[in-house]
């Protein structure tokens, strides 16, 4: 029984690491600020969730699990608020998003005066 829980936990940790790595690659690869924000969203929701669930299965009783659950819930409440505040500040300060109709090459950010 223990070995099954351990394997499920390892699977969750592996998936979470893969999702976080994908988000890290995305933040380098995507062409402008707003698209990079979506990459960060991946690591904040499912990446963090998978890793924390994997850790919960390592020690599935007592206060430790409740604390991990609290970290997960706090992450899920905090990350959209921070993302929205960031996007709104950028939008209000005239950082225009790249549109796919414009012919922009990767790596340049478009900023309309």
């Amino acid at each position: 029984m223990d070995i099954i829980v351990d394997m499920i936990s390892a699977l969750f940790l592996l998936l979470g690491s893969f999702l976080c790595l994908s988000g890290g690659v995305g933040i380098l690869r995507f062409p402008d600020f707003y698209t990079r924000m979506h990459a960060v969203g991946v690591t904040d929701t499912l990446g963090a969730g998978m890793i924390l669930i994997g850790l919960m299965l390592q020690n599935p009783e007592g206060l430790v699990m409740l604390k991990l659950l609290m970290i997960l819930i706090m992450t899920l409440f905090i990350s959209p608020v921070a993302s929205h505040a960031l996007a709104k500040a950028a939008f209000r300060n005239d950082l225009a998003p790249m549109s796919d109709r414009e012919e922009t090459e990767g790596g340049t950010e478009s900023s309309i005066p």
């Binding site: 933040i27 600020f33 990079r36 960031l86 950082l95 950010e109 900023s111």
Partner: peptide, 10 residues
Amino acid sequence: TLYDRILAVN
């Protein structure tokens, strides 16, 4: 841009 940096710090 500045916001990329804040995003990275976040």
